[in-house]
Design a protein around this nucleic acid. Sequence first.
RNA 1: UAAGCAGGCCGCCUUAUCGCUCUGACAUUUUUCAGGGAGGAAAGUCCGGACACCACAGGGCAGCAUAGUGGGUAACGCCCACCGGUCGUGAGAUCAGGACAAGUGCAACAGAAAGAAUGUACAGGUUAAGCUGUAGUGAAACCAGGUAAACUCUAUGCGGUGCAAUGCCAUGUAAACCGGCAUCUAAGGAUUGCUCGUUCGUUGCCGGAGGGUAGGCAGCUAAAAAUUAGUGGCAACGCUAAUUUCAGAUAAAUGAUAAGGAAUCCGAUCAAUUAUCGGAUGACAGAAUCCGGCUUACAGGCCUGCUUUUUAU
Length: 122
Amino acid sequence: MNESFGRSQKLKSKKLIDQLFAEGKNIKSYPLKLVYIPIANAENAELKTGVSVPKKLVKTAVQRNRIKRMMREVFRKNKYLVSNDLSSSYAFMFIHISREEMTYEKLDRSMKKILESFREKI
RNA sequence: UAAGCAGGCCGCCUUAUCGCUCUGACAUUUUUCAGGGAGGAAAGUCCGGACACCACAGGGCAGCAUAGUGGGUAACGCCCACCGGUCGUGAGAUCAGGACAAGUGCAACAGAAAGAAUGUACAGGUUAAGCUGUAGUGAAACCAGGUAAACUCUAUGCGGUGCAAUGCCAUGUAAACCGGCAUCUAAGGAUUGCUCGUUCGUUGCCGGAGGGUAGGCAGCUAAAAAUUAGUGGCAACGCUAAUUUCAGAUAAAUGAUAAGGAAUCCGAUCAAUUAUCGGAUGACAGAAUCCGGCUUACAGGCCUGCUUUUUAU
């Protein structure tokens, strides 16, 4: 099982991100929220994923960095839930919607829930 | 030993598995291997530079900063030494520490009065007069009074914008740029606070080429570099030699999990030091062009020098 999370799988394009926030659909499972959108003309079926922590909720850069790292780690461990039987490309953005830093277990549970419900929708 | 003063340092460690980023090698698609990968403040963005672009024809005014003397430095509002004031028994701490003999302003309480004002009492004195002296209030009463983190003056320095600077490539095309021709003579633009002065000038056509867009590359990390030794200097710091190469991301790389060890605290066992067992804790905080400082935040720990009073040796 491929658990890597390299550059090609990350969400980099600013245009795509703007479009994502403008038109994307939500799935919520506290303390995480997923915004996603299908990518129109992609060659391979793949996921472009980013993580985000609002500055309003978490003040210091150290805490934001740590939360983002944990979110990436949790996604990396669980992405097999959706990536194996993917028909087209999607852009993902995970947003941390809590004021406090969560434990690894909580984030893990929340991530699994989100990915399963995403799988049911498509 | 106690209380205290000054300065410096560290900022948990090791291993395994999975993963991120940069560089190099094989390869040139994937994969694999080797090596590097946050801080003392990376922070606040408060000073000073390097570097880049814009403007350069200069003068005047305004504005801002600094303020004992000497030194250090690329430079500074930083640092060091000395002198002086204030505080402390002391080690030491602290000070915008130039000028009130240019002008203007301000001064609680007391006092007649804090500056064109002369009251009261006594003495002197006169044609006359606060004209002279003393008393009284106050820190200060004509004395070249005090006060400049009061205006001000003096001396010195200061062009502006900042790596989202700037250059190149790609995409791509309208209003902005340059040259030529015709036309117009007034508004306006530039000179990056203002002004004098200087300078450019409107519209149409043709040609060249440029502007905007965080897409990519360069700028981008080898330097006022670090370590060690010697040497000059009271010191800040300089010089010489040897060795080393030590982050370069861009929705933004250093993480996650597990095990073990060290430190501190709490509880239990023990008469007690020690020891054993169990549990908890690890701060402030994340490079974004790069340096030198300043300021602010910081769990816990270590080291060095010195002071004071008493005790012990």
